[in-house]
Amino acid sequence: MTMLRATIGAEWIKLWSTRTVWWALTAALVLMAAGAGQYALYANNGDIDENSAGEIAALGLSFAQLAFIALASIVMTGEYSAGTIRATLTWTPLRPRLLLAKSVVVAAVTLVAGTIVGFVGTLVAASILDDSSMGAAAPKMGLYLALLGVFAVGLGAALRGPVITLVVLLMLVVVVPPLLQVPDLAVLNTIADALPGVAGERFLNENSYAGLLIVTAWAAGAFLIGARVLDRRDA
């Protein structure tokens, strides 16, 4: 436990001592404010079905989550692209502990920052919509982003390369689901529902705990595969 705390402490210092984190969090905030604002205007004009501030913020999150995904994946893949992985593993030779510490740090940051960003999005949407019901949208977004963050860290450990990791993440979360949904075939829709992005939307918009469970399963699966690859392969 003492050792895990030390590794978490080290990863915490590492996260906050480069500029990446600030760029990513600023980008998330800007994307959310702009996205939620734009969708709120559409809603006011009756162009879209969503009409509560929480739903509009969830639409904004489809942009803002890209910044969180990038931040979370770079926490692991950055070790390989910057060549620091060997040094890091001499500090912490027990590799699953390193991955756990990185996941804890990313989950904590994305939970808190995601909730704040979600709150800002809800606030922007509410002010445009004249909808004062804030609901529980913001903390749910934080929870979704924390799970997505753990997913990205684990995937980074399994794939190592920053570009391939980001491409796979974007495919699974953003690109593939709408492609599967276009033909509106039951089997393709079911596959789309099982992908983290769609499951997350279900959780945020429909309060679907099945959706939350699916995102959790992706996070846990990526963590386990990442830990195994990290442990097995030479650094």
Partner: peptide
């Protein structure tokens, strides 16, 4: 160069120290 180029030398060593108590 085992340190991240965007991190200061001091922060690199602070993280390293923290990792090993």
């Amino acid at each position: 160069k085992a340190a991240h180029p965007g991190r200061t030398g001091r922060n690199h060593l602070l993280a390293m120290a923290r990792s090993n108590g």
